[in-house]
Nucleic acid binder design. Structure first.
Lengths: 342, 342
DNA sequence: TAGGCCCTGGACAACGTTGTCAGGGGCGTG
DNA sequence: CACGCCCCTGACAACGTTGTCCAGGGCCTA
């Protein structure tokens, strides 16, 4: 039979389309489009008929199709390390608020600190044709984004710089913060200060280590290799590292912790000891005030906000050299950093 | 001139399309599609030519267009309250992991506890044609989702039940948790126990209050209206509430805090006092172990994981009555809940 | 050697929307 | 009364992809 009705091959569970609405309202397709988009040039009476049909059918515009036609998706992507980390929640939220103010949705993904996964995610977002991309790098080579950026995907890197590529970047002053934190310990009389940090291929970790070394050098203090421990932030590893620095005949009298996770574990480890050990941690932590933990605080929300604002300025057509912004950190003394050497 | 070339009206910053790739490789459009999608029926030699062209042009498939054709977007939406809240970060991350295992992306949105914003977000996600939707309700009427659900959008509610609509729901046992927490205080000798909670229109807040009352009644204890305070979780309000309960001739000797934010503020307020007051809080908190805060812990990640698994089972075609799952809570004694009455 | 089958490749329509353009009707003005 | 203008309205193409279907060529078999 020649007339087997040509049935569409999928249909979203049979959602009504503008065509259906048009048929029901007895108007043209384009008129429905006009009503839905609030475009002028529709009689109040026609508009009412269309709205009734929309109601009756439960029609909702398919933004996927719209995107295809318009070329902008009104969405931005955010690739971060781990949404469950209390540092990234506020950052993501800040990005979301800026996006919302610009009428855009946010798609985020966690790289779990895996460069391959970062790339996979970022490219998947590009395939979705996000208008812009904010990336907290896990890897150190971002040339894979070059074609995307050339094709017009605005891209901003946050928290850590991009690798082998020029792009807008928003950072915290890790070097300066760590230097100030260690100097604070020095000022309170410490001469043997330990540093427990994350893997040094992570830019912030390397910078903080550099800040530590700079502060020690500023004070004319030597740095014993045994005082420096870099590696994963696994609690077990950090505990071992702390324990090692506190053992032996010449133990450290103070610790600088390279990020929030290290700080938490270090506090737990120190809590079990009798001899007081001074501690300054990078990143603020909830309840740190009650525990009296001195920290170098960075403003995660400000990082996200700044990056997002930059992104949307690019999307609004800003055309200038990529810029690198460093946000200041803040020393918050709360007791643990003011303990004198034992 | 009749021949002014018809220029496309937008172009994504001029991204190459399959057509461009086909032209460059000297093959047909569909052949490119086959290569990109790993479909069979392409000679190795042809495939190589296509891949070279893709490389040379920096082509990346436009998933927006793909979605339009295929009907599935491979993305799910999550509407939560506030991504910056340490409770929701892990929940969102757990959803993301399940989605990733199913090859889907996650689009997040924060409702800021505003029902209108919740609706706006959820419907925007539907317009993007997410395959499924996970909602942590801010409002108490979700009939607006009925057309969407009928149209095939799988929907699961988490943490709080849906309002005026039947749908899959995953909850923590707020009632039982609060009841157990208050019973714990009673077991340690307390008879005057205060309850500081969130606004009662929030389902979990109401349930926890109910649990509190049940535990008091179980123990045959009266509840003075002055011991119950419900309202925003603003620190100022919570501090005032706590202060009020501790003032007067017959102050409470123990407090039950209705959620993580209340707990944090209560701990801060109690820290400034000399007379010890027992405290049990709902939700676990980072570092609560060090501060010795006894809590009723709920597993945010398990909530998210369970909900997401349910969602994808629906997407895989599961067809059965909506189900309501309640996850158990866990009492974690750490000291503050075991303080005897002063 | 003819017939049939498989393998490769391409033309075409369709997904649901928006931009362009042209037509028709009403109304004001000369 | 006629002309022209403006306001509504709808037909049509296009966005970039995938599903369907058909054509051509090579190879195997009878």
């Amino acid at each position: 039979m020649a007339e087997t009705a040509r049935r569409p091959d999928h249909r979203y569970g049979n959602r009504p389309t503008m065509k259906d609405v048009a048929a029901r309202a007895g108007v043209g397709l384009k008129t429905v489009s006009r009503v839905v988009n609030g475009e002028p040039g529709v009689t109040p009476d026609t508009e009412r008929r269309v709205r009734e049909a929309i109601q009756a059918l439960g029609f909702r515009r398919n933004d996927s199709a719209r995107v295809l036609r318009k070329g902008r998706t009104a969405s931005v992507g955010l690739v971060l390390e781990d949404l469950a980390d209390p540092f990234y929640g506020p950052l993501s939220r800040a990005v979301e608020e800026v996006a919302r103010a610009h009428g855009a949705l946010l798609i985020n993904g966690s790289s779990a600190e895996d460069p391959d996964r970062e790339q996979e995610l970022a490219l998947a977002l590009c395939a979705r044709r996000v208008d812009g991309l904010i990336v907290i790098p896990a890897g150190d080579d971002h040339r894979y984004l070059e074609p995307e950026m050339r094709a017009g995907v605005a891209t901003v890197f946050v928290d850590r710089p991009a690798g082998r590529i020029e792009a807008d970047t928003v950072l915290s002053d890790s070097f300066g913060g760590a230097r100030a934190g260690v100097a604070h310990l020095v000022a309170h009389g410490h001469r043997r200060i330990g540093f427990v940090g994350d893997r040094p291929r992570i830019h912030t970790a390397a910078e903080r280590l550099r800040g530590y070394r700079a502060a020690m050098e500023d004070a004319g203090l030597p740095v014993d290799d045994a005082w420096v421990s870099l590696g994963s932030t696994e609690p077990a590893r950090v505990r071992d590292a702390v324990a090692a620095m506190l053992a032996g005949p010449e133990p450290v009298t103070a610790l600088f912790a390279g990020n929030n996770r290290v700080t938490v574990t270090a506090v737990r480890e120190l809590a079990g000891r009798t001899r007081p050990v001074a501690l300054v941690g990078f990143d603020d932590i909830e309840l740190a005030d009650l525990l009296g933990i001195t920290v170098i605080a960075q403003d995660a929300a400000a990082l996200g906000r700044t990056a997002a604002q930059r992104l949307f300025r690019r999307l609004d057509g800003l055309h200038e050299e990529p810029r690198r912004v460093e946000l200041a950190t803040r020393l918050v003394p709360r007791g643990s950093g003011e303990i004198p050497p034992a």
